[in-house]
Amino acid sequence: MDTGSSPGDPGGAWQRAVRALERAARAEALAERYERLALESGNTRHAELAANHRRSAACHRSSARLQKTFAQQLMSLTGPQDTQPLFMSVVAEACGTDSAALTLVGSDQSQLAVAASDKGSRAAQDLEYVLGEGPGTDAAAGRHRVSATGLDIEQRWPAYGPAVTALGFGEVIAVPLKTPDGCLGSLAVFDPRPGAATNTVFADVTQGLVQTMLLGPDADPELYGGTDHRDAVHQAAGMVSVQEHCPVGDALALIKARAYADGVPVNEMAERIVSGAFRLA
């Protein structure tokens, strides 16, 4: 797992783009070979293989586009005062929106790491974390696409729904980050432009993310420094478990509940606890 590329270095992103293009070219050459074989033999298995390679090539191309756009954004930085671009904002753009959130979960469906493209998606992701329900959770657990608009959002998730529409979002679509026989988490996008978030776009973007950024020889699950492991939250959970003489899981639930009740982002609540400025109970 390569976590060496620094967030500010476009070189890593260019290299990933080039390698993704090479993989795409290889997959396309194979697809062509099988298409010729299928024509000659009429064998449906060859046609299936050709289609698989075409799909795989599309994923690699999509992945190369993400890397290239990100590298260009890094290179257009003019000074140190510029804010670092986020890889997730490139992912969001590919899905036709400004707001996209990625969540990585464990086999027990617990959230292990998150990344978001902007404040809105970050706030929505926090809501899902503290309330324990929402589209990303459902997409990862059910391994299928979840989408909802307007009132449907509020009815579907009684706690999360009204809170997320209060943020101003009117539509959410979440898709699982599938592996051949598992699921790494989900990608949620908010208010995509009409017609932008098609199944094909999602399939290419999620498979590109899984194959290039999360798994494989080239992986950087840190997303160029954009991944948040919620370190402070887990530190605070450890502290609260001692203070309250309770299991760390219960301590985490207490922190989430308090953050929600006080209307404070959970990471900020955790930092207050860690710094000693705030004690639960």
Partner: peptide, 28 residues
Amino acid sequence: SRTLSGQLEHALVSRVIIEQAKGVLANS
């Protein structure tokens, strides 16, 4: 793919548990 997913999950879970342990020790 199973091996790689397993490695990713292990790395992420380890980080969580280490941060939790730091919190426990910091407080106690």
